[in-house]
């Protein structure tokens, strides 16, 4: 059974030690550069000089490569094929498959878009692998994000696996009453009510009790909240964020100027 829904891996690395907001800005910078910098090879280069080095710096190279092989590369590969075949640009046909044409222009176009997706998903993956969700939320709350908002995000991440476990118990309880969930589609559709009814009712009770429990612990107190963990935000992080911001502005600016 899953204990929680999180990709975070506890390690001690340069990337782990960065302030969560810095990491968030870094992630957005990589994505925006890949999409806006007006040079064809930008996303390809970013993979080589940023994404892969960062996965090494974050000591999550192995986990990152596993995700890349299982998810990022297949998805980007699929996108590449779709666009290379179906993008109606160019005349220089280099490959034909029945009525589908692949032109050198469409291949170049598809290649860049696929790499942009690789950069985007990779950047997010690295962010999730090296950032603890509660650290991110504490930091954002400290910077003015409403506490209730942060609470909803974190508790949803944690409570979803519990709801799935509960759904499993309900299925077991109804199968014990002779409910056939394993045969025809019609029968399965008919068995939805006995499964969803208790789940919804149970969740309503849970939500009410949880609201009482956190209220009893001062959740809506008007005091200024403190935080158990200190989340450091040294000058280095602050400067890095400025540098990244300038990069974003330059990239978008060049993009607008050249277009």
């Amino acid at each position: 059974m899953h204990e929680r829904l999180s990709f975070h891996i506890q390690r001690d690395s340069f990337l782990h030690r960065l302030n969560p907001l810095t990491k968030l800005v870094l992630t957005l910078t990589l994505i925006l550069l890949a999409f806006t910098f007006p040079w064809y090879w930008t996303p390809h280069l970013l993979v080589l000089i940023a994404v892969i080095p960062l996965s090494l710096l974050g000591k999550v190279f192995r986990e990152f490569m596993l995700t890349a092989l299982r998810l990022i590369i297949p998805a980007a590969g699929f996108l590449f094929l779709m666009q290379a075949f179906f993008q109606p640009i160019g005349t220089d046909i280099i490959f034909q498959f029945y009525f589908l044409d692949m032109t050198s222009e469409s291949v170049l176009f598809a290649f860049r878009n696929a790499m942009r997706i690789v950069v985007m998903v990779s950047a997010f993956t690295l962010f999730l692998l090296t950032t603890h969700p509660s650290e991110l939320m504490s930091d954002l709350t400290r910077r003015g994000l409403p506490g209730q908002f942060a609470y909803v995000i974190i508790s949803t991440l944690q409570i979803l696996p519990q709801i799935m476990a509960k759904a499993q118990t309900i299925i077991s309880a109804q199968r014990s009453r002779g409910l056939d969930t394993e045969s025809s589609f019609l029968k399965r559709a008919g068995s939805l009510i006995p499964l969803i009814g208790p789940l919804v009712f149970g969740s309503l009770v849970e939500v009410e009790e949880r609201a009482i429990a956190i209220e009893a612990r001062g959740f809506t107190s008007k005091h200024v909240k403190t935080s158990l963990h200190e989340i450091p935000d040294p000058t280095f992080d602050k400067s890095l964020r400025w540098v990244l911001l300038i990069l974003i502005i330059i990239s978008i600016g060049l993009n607008l100027w050249l277009s």
Partner: peptide, 22 residues
Amino acid sequence: STAKLASRVGYVFQNPDEQLFS
């Protein structure tokens, strides 16, 4: 299957809220 075995073995789960829906 459990649905078949249900004709021989009845099982009352601990929490009634996990089975009542009618």
